[in-house]
Design a protein around this nucleic acid. Structure first.
Lengths: 237, 237
DNA sequence: CGATGCAGGATTGTATACATGCCTGTCCTA
DNA sequence: TAGGACAGGCATGTATACAATCCTGCATCG
C-alpha cells in the first residue's frame, strides 16, 4: 500500500506526530466525530484503553488542550471541547486570513506530483462518502486544506491551519445544519484546477469562496451547543 | 499599583495564563532574552529553582514546546528553541498574513480607552529603554502587537499572534543585526495614530510596513547560535 | 416532601521511585 | 599518541503512590 507518507504524516502535523500515540489516536477519533463534543475524557479510562499509565494520558490531554480540541478544567478533568459560536466565527476568520493567500502561494509552487496527490486525496474523499463513512470523509476533507499549506511549503502556517481545521471539525459537529448538501468535493476540485493551472489569483478566490460557503452552511445563531448532559450545560463557566 | 490587568494578562495569553506558573516564568525569561536560544533546560535544575517536582517542570516544558519556544529532543531533554532561518521567514510570513488585517479590524473597534492603554504601553516601552532594560522593552514591544489583536476582539488570532511574537523574540535574539537603530517605537506610535483616527486602511498599511521593517532589520543569511548559564537568568523575579 | 449537610467513593494534582537510554571519562590497544 | 570500546554516572521516560478536591448518595431536618 505504502502511499508515500504525505497524507499520513500530515494527519499528524499536530497531535504528537504519530497516529500510534495517545494524542494522535484521540485526535483522530475527535476529528472523525467518533467522540462528541463535551464528552468526558477520564484519565484512568483512557489509560486502560490505550494500555499506558495516567502519566502519558495526561501528557496527551495537555497537548490536545493546547490545540483547543480538549478543554481542561481544574480538578474536574478533560472534556472534548465545545467551541462557542464566537469561537466558531473566530476560527473561520483566522482561516480566512491564512488560507486564501496560502492557496495563492501553493499555486505558484505546485508540481505535477502535488496535483496528482491532491487528486488522489479527493478520490479518497469520494470513496469514503460512497462507503458510507462520513467521518472519514470529513477528516480527509480537512486534510485537503492542510495539503495546500504543505504545497505552499509553509510549515508554520500549516500547523496553524491544521489546528484550525481540527477545531472546525468540532464546530461542524456542533453547528452543521444538515439541510445543506455536501458541495465540498466540488469546491475542492475547482480549487485543484486553479492550482494545476498555476493560477494564484483564482486559487485565492476559490479558497476564499469555499471558506465562505463553509461558514454559510453552519447555523451560528442559537448560542446553545448541544451538551452531553444537563449538568454540563449548566455549570459551563 | 494595580495596572488593571490587561497588559499583564495578555503577557500570559499563552504560557499557562499566569506569571507565577513555571511555564509563565520560563516564557518571560525567554521573552526578555535572559535565557539564550539553545540553552539546556534540565528538569532537575528547573525543579530546584522553582521549588516543584519534575512532574510540573515537564508539563511546563511540554507546553512551551507546543508554543515552539522550547525544543524537546527525545532522551536528550529540553532546550530553548533556535529558530532556523527558514522558520524565521515563515514566522514573519504568518505574521504578515494575520496582523495587518487584524490592525484594520482594530481600527474599526478601538475605543478611547483602548487608545489610552496603547499609549501607556508605548510610554512604558520608552521608559524601559531609557532605564537601560532592553529585554523588558523588547517584551513590551511584542505585547503591543498582541494588544492590537485584543482590540480587534479576536481571541483566536490573538493566541496565534502571541505565539508568533514570542517566537519572533527568539528570532531577534539570533538574527538581529545591531547596526539598525531602534525605530520600533516610531512605528508603534504611527500605528497608534491610525488606530485613533479609526483609519483601518492606514492601520493595515502601517502594520504591513512595520513587519517588513522588522524582517529587514534581521540578518537571515548565516545561522549563529550562542548559549549561556541558566540559574543566573532565572533566580530573579 | 423537599432541601441541606455530611460521609464515602472516585477522580484529579503532585511527588517520588524505578527503568531506560545517553553521555563522558578512562583504559586498553594498535 | 590516537582511536575505540566499555563502564559508570546522570538525565530523561514511565509508572506508581500519596494528597487534595470534587461528585454522589443517603440521612436528617425543617
Amino acid at each position: 500500500m505504502e502511499m508515500r507518507g504525505s497524507m499520513t504524516e500530515d494527519a499528524a502535523a499536530l497531535s504528537g506526530g504519530g497516529n500510534d500515540t495517545v494524542a494522535g489516536r484521540l485526535a483522530l477519533a475527535i476529528h472523525e466525530h467518533r467522540i462528541q463534543p463535551g464528552t468526558k475524557l477520564a484519565e484512568d479510562e483512557l489509560g486502560e484503553i490505550f494500555g499506558v499509565s495516567r502519566t502519558l494520558v495526561r501528557a496527551a490531554l495537555q497537548q490536545l488542550s493546547h490545540e483547543r480540541l480538549v478543554t481542561l478544567r481544574r480538578n474536574r478533568g478533560a472534556f472534548v471541547a465545545q467551541p462557542s459560536v464566537r469561537e466558531a466565527r473566530e476560527v473561520f476568520e483566522a482561516r480566512n486570513l491564512l488560507e486564501p493567500r496560502t492557496a495563492r502561494s501553493a499555486a505558484a509552487r505546485a508540481t505535477a506530483a502535488d496535483i496528482a496527490r491532491l487528486q488522489r486525496h479527493i478520490d479518497e474523499e469520494h470513496a469514503a462518502l460512497d462507503a458510507g463513512d462520513p467521518g472519514r470523509a470529513l477528516r480527509l476533507s480537512g486534510q485537503f486544506h492542510i495539503e495546500v499549506a504543505v504545497i505552499a511549503d509553509q510549515d508554520t502556517i500549516r500547523d496553524f491551519v491544521a489546528q484550525l481545521v481540527a477545531r472546525s471539525s468540532l464546530i461542524i459537529a456542533l453547528y452543521w445544519q444538515r439541510r445543506t448538501a455536501l458541495c465540498e468535493s466540488h469546491a475542492h476540485h475547482a480549487l485543484l484546477r486553479a492550482l494545476a493551472d498555476g493560477d494564484g489569483a483564482r486559487a485565492e478566490e476559490m479558497m476564499k469562496g469555499h471558506l465562505l460557503d463553509l461558514v454559510s452552511s453552519l447555523d451560528l445563531r442559537n448560542p446553545a451547543p448541544p451538551a452531553r448532559s444537563l449538568r454540563e450545560a449548566l455549570d459551563r463557566i
